[in-house]
């Protein structure tokens, strides 16, 4: 029995190794046949394409490696904005579903059912055509606050910049065609960030609702017997207890959000996947580009999982573990 199990496993290992080796040789031969030398050396070659939306300086003379860095920074920034916004919106919707006001509760439920049941890609596209189709020209931009302007060319914001006199808030100024100065969030960035937020918030709301409902009703009744009002009950009794069961599924939703940010490629926001797509079409290094995508997302996932796990662990230690 034991011998058979060992033999079987050895055979599986051999078969897997052989298949991998065979595939590697086949792919390498095919790539050389197409005039492409396998390996990551191409990252130091000149990219030759421009990127519309960058956090660090980039032009066509820069390398593929730098293009990937630009893409990575874009992925991280759009995901970070969407994480903060969807936690806020999702938390509010989740608590709203449990509100004593029936109308408000039903409204929050309707939101969840509406946004959960439409593909994220469709939501990205809908927000995108709304932004570029229905917003006014920069000359007639809507003012959303002091020095905040929303128009076809995006959302213009004041942004801190270094000047001779130190760190200053630079204000966007309307030029002849569009805004200059400050920061400009493009419609591509906005549509990906907004759709990720709306979609993920619906899932986060369900997580929050489930965790809060799982806290025993007696806890609420006891808190109210002690004279705490609704807000205090929520803040000091219910939410701290709900958090411990909330964090693992919440971490899952954030991981999904980070992976879903790759849909940016559909509206041409230059995230990591979009840069990789351009690069692999242009250079023919398909294996390497896909390996980079996979490695980056796996790393981002591991970092997020570790951060959320650390928070969960600290919370459990503070609260003295499970009863």
């Amino acid at each position: 029995m034991k011998v058979r199990a060992y033999a079987l496993q050895a055979a599986i290992v051999a078969a897997v190794l052989l298949a991998l080796y065979g595939l590697a040789t086949l792919v390498a031969a095919k790539m050389r046949g197409l005039g492409v030398e396998p390996g990551f050396g191409f990252l130091w070659q000149r990219a030759g394409f421009d990127i519309g939306d960058t956090l660090i300086a980039f032009d066509a003379a820069d390398t593929y490696g730098r293009a990937f860095l630009v893409g990575l920074l874009n992925t991280v920034s759009v995901a970070a904005v969407a994480i903060v916004a969807s936690l806020g919106l999702g938390g509010a919707l989740g608590l709203g579903q449990l509100a004593r006001n029936r109308l408000l509760a039903r409204l929050c439920e309707a939101y969840v059912e509406l946004f959960r049941n439409v593909p994220l890609l469709l939501q990205v596209l809908i927000v995108y055509v709304l932004l570029i189709g229905r917003l006014p020209l920069p000359q007639e931009a809507w003012s959303l606050g002091p020095d905040v302007w929303l128009s076809k060319s995006g959302l213009a914001l004041p942004w801190p910049t270094f000047t001779d006199v130190g760190l200053m808030l630079e204000r966007p100024v309307l030029g002849r065609f569009t805004f200059s100065g400050g920061a400009m969030l493009t419609p591509e960035f906005l549509s990906v960030a907004a759709a990720l937020t709306l979609f993920t918030a619906a899932y986060i709301a369900e997580v929050v609702r489930g965790s809060v409902q799982a806290v025993s009703r007696r806890q609420t009744e006891a808190a109210q017997a002690l004279g705490l009002n609704d807000a205090q009950t929520l803040r000091f009794v219910v939410v701290p207890q709900a958090l411990r069961s909330m964090i693992p599924p919440l971490a899952n939703q954030l991981l999904n959000l980070i992976k879903n940010s790759s849909l940016a490629v559909a509206v041409g926001y230059p995230d990591l996947v979009a840069v990789a797509d351009t690069t692999l079409n242009q250079s023919g290094h398909a294996v390497e580009c896909i390996a980079i995508i996979m490695a980056v997302y796996l790393t981002l996932s591991l970092i997020t999982a570790a951060l959320m796990g650390g928070w969960h662990g600290r919370l459990l230690r503070q609260q003295g573990g499970y009863p």
Binding site: I12, V16, L23, L26, V27, K30, M31, K259, N260, S262, L263, V265, V273, A276, D277, L280, A286, V287, C289, I290, I293, M294, Y297, L298, S301, L302
Partner: peptide, 28 residues
């Protein structure tokens, strides 16, 4: 093997898996 496969696929976006279908499978 099963754990590595499951975690690898679940750790990457579906777009990456679709790219594999479009660009890598023909090479294989």
């Amino acid at each position: 093997l099963c754990t590595v496969f499951i975690e690898l696929v679940r750790g990457v976006p579906m777009v990456a898996v679709l790219f594999m279908a479009a660009f890598l499978f023909p090479l294989f």
